[in-house]
Design a protein around this nucleic acid. Structure first.
Length: 873
RNA sequence: GCGGACGUGGUGGAAUUGGUAGACACACAGGACUUAAAAUCCUGAGACGGCAACGUCGUGUGGGUUCGAGUCCCACCGUCCGCACCA
């Protein structure tokens, strides 16, 4: 009986309904079973899903379905990272409301995701813009505030003049706003912070425990946190010309060992002392302004030009009061790192050396590199930043740099200046507190009331939520909450006098810092996170998302979960929310440009020829167009493929299969029409194979597997090896290898089909069922169709993963390569149980081996059982 | 500048972690079926030499360790990513 082609688009909806009706995607409630929490980074509801989503959610879905088949209670939820500026921009442009726009987008994207056939527990869906979500976030904020983990303070903030908002440091890329691309300005204002620096050390140390995270991400986070060990050293100002009230300069250094190479002390242009001096020194003021102007420019930083201004002040060396050291203002000293002041040892630091050479300041070598001659050694254009032996350093001479560090530290700790030690050991971090204030409407309101008498007063928990007013206006830039006529007018919770509501909302990264916890019990009314549910489900067992979140979202989440634990807002059983992380690559595509330089969609282009003769023409004009480089799919370059089109034409399984097949999941994948066709061909091929098998062996055959012939045994071995390999590859997220294994296996089934015999039918029947079951996580709809065709009226989606028979994973005969002097000369097939001496004898008797030996005796024979024989002649 | 990753046929990539390099797929070529096309099936293919058996070379380049190296070590070249005047 010949079969119809499998009509994927028509059948997929059927099976999706069947899964929903059976409720199989709901997370299990039996907490005695082992759990597996699979999560993909939730999407921003931009309006439509893109191929990046398809790739991300397919990977998570395969893993979730596989784990379910393995007997785990699987939690695989989905939600919406729904606050953010695009909604407000849309409101401004399209005269709609951010909420309306957002919820419409969510509805559209939910339908798209459902058409992918994802095994998601939709009963747990959350949207961060919903008051049921953000009311809890306000509660968490209040808990953090009470613990001092949230605070309001002055900030030099990054102000984005286009989006009219403050940006976090992480959102400033090369001096520009991450979203608007506008040059960021610096402004002083009162803003809200989360005290992420309180956890700097733990966040760094605990990276070591994240052994299922990519090394790359851990390194990026470690660099971002940027721990350095050093000393804070105070230098007494020479009172002769020091300004009123200024007595010392505190510097931070990681190299106190080079203290005797000190040439000058440099302070930042924004250092309080520099500011004070600038009040009476117009030249210095102008210099400082110049530094500020240049400071933000990347070009200036790349040029690295060192600029300085001699203040005329002096400080006394901390270990020699007789030693006067000049104080400079320098553009390369940053106010927001350390103390905003350094001591410079030009022989040991390249920047200091450049500066010293430019302004004619002393350069005293203090570290002799290994192998250098002390008598002739001098500093040329390069500073000695490596370790060595101390010279010209008084009591440190002869010590190693490390030894000198310890020795000088003791002296600095013992010496005093104004009753306190001159130097103390200190650890500094590059990481800064997280500024969360955003002057926008579409975000979670910060639950605080400003009162003239009481100051910033937290909104009492009983008054939560602080809801966004629906009747805000979006017709001009700036903060709609700020200009709302009534919303901010409230009474002070403490003194009941008229007060002003905080109009800042929270950075949307706050929303995504705890959503994984909310999923464990999204309906919980009392607490943001239900302790019992969280204890069972967390941590996330497999988190999947883009590398672009390596620092921002992933570091914030790690911090936030700790902060919540410390503030009692979340159960503190696990400190790391994501036990395993996988960062998937991007989806890329060729780009096309018309002859007059417009970008063209792939659907606007027709092709002819192939290889070097491949030509593209623009369909609308018939003119030739240029085939450009392969780049990440983006609206700007129009190299987009719409998932809807693919699913409607080829089916979800086809899109899923192609996404899994072509590239290792952590690398970029190139979307090609040919690749999709290949995936579509494979779907039809599986369908034909299963049909043929179902016709030949309509039921499981009750014959004994013991009496099978060679061909049947061969197929059975292929079956069980495939089950084993596919399972292991899915487990380790090596989907492309799992796919290749399935191709290889279906080739093996095809090869067995022409053979006949009851034992072949038996092996084929088994093959058909196993093929279907091991395909189910990857192409779930096709698998259901095949399962039904094989005569079952159950859902294959809830069938357990098949167990491979260990006895069938090994062959009784093995083929091993035979080498002479490391060169392959032949191969040998022997019984698996053959002894080394038997193998050696057989290898030495091989014709090609005899030829290669040319009569020479074998000096040595190495036999690696079941692998290889190497004969050394 | 600092830190990291990667480099395998025409293409995407595999290689049991030191043991037959190029699985599997895409593209290609030839053939079968067909009035024809589509679909499907079969065959071929790393490069060079040879009718062939076969031989030589071959995982960015150059060295090294080893019976044996795509895999380990050293140096270099190239590509990509992150951070960037961090004291």
């Amino acid at each position: 009986m010949s079969s119809e082609r499998y009509n994927a688009p028509a059948r997929e909806r059927h099976w999706q309904e069947a899964w929903t009706t059976a409720g199989i995607d709901k997370a299990g409630t039996d907490t005695s079973k082992p759990k597996c929490y699979v999560l993909e980074m939730f999407p921003y509801p931009s309006g439509r899903i893109h191929m990046g989503h398809v790739r991300n959610y397919t990977m998570g879905d395969v893993f979730a379905r596989y784990k379910r088949a393995r007997g785990f209670n699987v939690l695989h939820p989905m939600g919406w990272d729904a606050f953010g500026m695009p909604a407000e921009n849309a409101a401004l442009e399209r005269k709609t409301h951010p909420a309306k726009w957002t919820y419409a987008n969510i509805d559209a994207m939910r339908a798209q995701l459902k058409s992918m056939g994802l095994a998601i527990d939709w009963s747990r869906e959350i949207a961060t813009c919903h008051v049921d979500y953000y009311r809890h976030q306000q509660e968490i904020f209040l808990d953090l505030l009470a613990k001092g983990l949230a605070y309001r303070g002055p900030g030099k903030v990054n102000w984005d003049p286009v989006d009219q908002t403050v940006l976090a440091n992480e959102q400033v890329i090369d001096g520009r706003g991450w979203r608007s691309g506008a040059l960021v300005e610096t402004r002083e204002m009162q803003v809200w912070y989360f005290r992420i620096t309180a956890f700097a050390d733990d966040l760094l140390k605990s990276l070591e425990t994240l052994d299922k995270w990519p090394e790359k991400v851990r390194l990026m986070q470690a660099n971002w946190i940027g721990r350095s060990e050093g000393m804070s050293v105070r230098w007494a100002l020479d009172p002769e010309n020091a300004p009123e009230g200024e007595t010392e300069i505190e510097v931070f250094t990681t190299r106190p060992d080079t203290l005797f190479g000190a040439s000058f002390v440099a302070i930042a242009a924004d250092h309080p002392l520099a500011k004070k001096l600038a009040e009476t020194n117009a030249d210095l003021k102008e210099f400082a302004d110049e530094c500020r102007r240049r400071g933000t420019s990347i070009i200036e930083i790349e040029k690295g030009e060192k600029l300085g201004f001699d203040t005329g002040l002096f400080v006394r060396h901390p270990l020699d009061p007789e030693w006067k050291v000049p104080v400079w203002v320098a553009n390369f000293v940053l106010m927001d790192y350390g103390t905003g002041a350094i001591f410079a040892c030009p022989s040991g630091d390249q920047r200091d050396l450049d500066f010293a050479r430019k302004y004619g300041l002393p350069v005293v070598p203090v570290v002799l590199p290994p192998g250098a001659d002390a008598a002739t050694f001098e500093i040329g254009g390069d500073a000695i930043e490596s370790d060595g032996t101390m010279i010209n350093s008084r009591f440190l001479d002869g010590l190693s740099t490390k030894g000198a560090f310890e020795e000088v530290a003791k002296h600095l700790e013992a010496a005093t200046l104004g009753n306190r030690p001159v130097g103390v050991r200190q650890v500094k971090y590059r990481l800064k507190d997280w500024g969360i204030s955003r002057q926008r409407y579409w975000g979670c309101p910060i639950p605080v009331i400003h009162c003239e008498t009481c100051g910033a007063v937290p909104v009492p928990k009983k008054d939560l939520p602080v809801e966004l007013p629906e009747d805000a206006t979006f017709d001009k830039p700036g903060n709609p909450l700020e200009r709302h006529p009534t919303w901010k007018s409230v009474t002070c919770p403490k003194c009941k006098k008229p007060a002003r509501r905080e109009t800042d909302t929270m950075d949307t990264f706050v929303d995504s810092s705890w959503y994984y916890g909310r999923f464990t019990d999204p309906a919980s009314k009392k607490k943001p996170i239900d302790a019992k549910a969280a204890d069972y489900w967390l941590p996330v067992d497999q988190y999947i998302g883009g590398i672009e979140h390596a620092i921002l979202h992933l570091l914030y989440s790690r911090f936030f979960w700790r902060a919540m634990g410390a503030a009692g807002a979340a159960p503190a059983k696990v400190s790391e929310p994501f036990a395993a992380l996988f960062t998937q690559g991007m989806v890329t595509h060729e780009t096309y440009k018309s002859d007059d330089g417009r970008w063209l969609l792939p659907t606007e282009v027709a092709f002819e020829g192939d290889g070097d003769t491949r030509r593209a023409t623009e369909v609308a004009t018939g003119k030739p167009c240029a085939i450009g480089s392969i780049e990440k799919m983006s609206k700007s370059k129009k190299n987009l493929v719409d998932p809807d089109d693919i699913i409607a034409h080829w089916g979800a399984d086809c899109a899923r299969w192609f996404m899994l097949s072509d590239s290792p999941p952590e690398r970029d994948v190139i979307w090609t029409e040919a690749g999709v066709q290949g995936a579509g061909r494979f779907i039809q091929r599986v369908w034909r194979l299963v049909n043929e098998i179902a016709d030949r062996a309509p039921n499981s055959l009750a014959i004994s597997p013991s009496g099978l012939g060679d061909a049947a045994m061969e197929l059975r071995r292929a079956t069980h090896k495939s089950i084993d390999a596919v399972g292991r590859n899915i487990e380790s997220l090596r989907f492309n290898v799992a796919v290749a294994q399935m191709y290889e296996y279906s080739n093996a089934i095809s090869a067995a089909l022409p053979k006949s015999g009851e034992d072949i039918d038996f092996a084929l029947r088994e093959a058909g069922e196993m093929l279907t079951r091991s395909l189910a996580p990857m192409m779930p709809h096709l698998a259901e169709e095949c399962w039904a065709r094989l005569g079952y009226n159950t859902l294959v989606a809830i069938e357990p993963w098949p167990e491979a028979d260990p006895a069938l994973l090994v062959d009784d005969r093995v083929t091993l390569a035979v080498q002479v002097n490391g060169k392959r000369r032949g191969e040998l097939t022997v019984a698996r149980s053959a002894t080394s001496s038997e193998v050696e004898a057989a290898a030495l008797a091989l014709d090609p081996v005899l030829r290669a030996l040319e009569g020479r005796p074998a000096k040595k024979v190495i036999v690696v059982p079941q692998r290889i024989v190497n004969i050394v002649a």
